[in-house]
Simulated assay, not measured.
Amino acid sequence: MAPARTRRDGPPGGGGRLMIIAADHPARGALGVGGDPVAMADRAGLLDRLCAALGRPGVDGVLGTPDVLEDLLLLGVLDDRLAIGSMNRGGLAGTSFEIDDRFTAYDAGAIAAARLDGGKMLLRIDDADPATASTLQACAQAVTGLARHELMAMVEPFVAHRIEGRVRNLLTPEAMIRAVSVASGLGATSAYTWLKLPVVPEMERVMAATTLPALLLGGEVAGETDAVLDGWRRALRIPGVQGLVAGRALLYPPDGDVGAAVDAAVDLL
């Protein structure tokens, strides 16, 4: 399957801003959308939505775990699309070991062997959880490994803490500045590192903390999408912001129209 895929010429982002559809949530046990705690559990439904999104003009590719990307390869929808492999899915949502975010999906060698275009890793920094140290080390090794293959390393950093036993990301400018600063220094080189960041207040200050290119993440949309689109629109004006990586916000829009949601996001680019 993978050897037969027609890959896009040139490096990621070489032709302009990127629009990537994210579909790596299920492997971390994060299946909820809105009020439905298992909205993403229907795999055929998820694949239908992914095919619809990947078929829209202006969509560059997809981010997913091996099971999802292999399904999409079998469906023949990844030709001339970027395919980014999700790497650390071991920090299952809601567990006591969530910060111990082990690399249970792709590693750098597997991404290169599958002829993918890069790898994505989640990095949550919890000052009170010793497992942060091993996650930092694993992410640094992944950045270095991907760079050896001249492949994109997409790092999604947060400062996190536990509230009533559940991990919550701190979405203040100061917390994101700290997370960006730590993520930018991971690995033996940052030549192939991109950041995947949420839109937070004072994004200009956040982006001033790094010279690395950044993609904006979508997160979950509760209610109307206008506020999300407006946040993306403002952040995309900032130098260094190179596009979007959105999943649930586009695949499960409140009105159910995947095509319209994707088109609205693409229009921002």
Rank of each mutant, 00 (worst) to 15 (best):
G119T: 02
A44Q: 14
W194Q: 01
R5Y: 03
G14E: 08
A179E: 10
R43E: 15
V200Y: 08
V200F: 07
R234N: 08
P253K: 06
P173I: 04
V258D: 09
G32I: 01
S190T: 13
L72N: 02
A191G: 14
E174D: 15
D101E: 10
I99S: 02
T172W: 12
G85Y: 01
A53I: 06
D36V: 05
L18P: 03
S181V: 09
R234G: 10
A30Y: 15
V266E: 04
P66I: 01
F103M: 15
P12C: 04
E150A: 15
T189D: 06
L73G: 08
H25F: 07
E164T: 01
L47A: 04
M176H: 13
V221E: 10
M1C: 11
R205S: 05
V182G: 12
G34E: 13
V200S: 12
M176F: 07
T210L: 13
T6L: 14
D126P: 10
L216C: 11
G259P: 05
R102C: 11
L122T: 13
M176R: 08
R8K: 07
M154V: 09
A22R: 00
R233D: 08
P201Y: 01
G61K: 00
S181K: 14
R17N: 10
A23V: 04
R148G: 14
G109D: 15
D230K: 11
D257I: 12
M203D: 12
Y192L: 00
C51N: 03
D101Y: 02
A4T: 09
D36N: 15
F97W: 14
V241F: 07
T210F: 12
G64K: 05
M176L: 15
G109Y: 09
A131G: 01
M19H: 11
L46H: 07
C139I: 06
P198W: 10
D48M: 09
V155E: 12
D129I: 04
V206H: 05
A140L: 11
E224T: 12
D255K: 04
A30D: 11
S96H: 14
F158N: 07
L92E: 13
V266W: 10
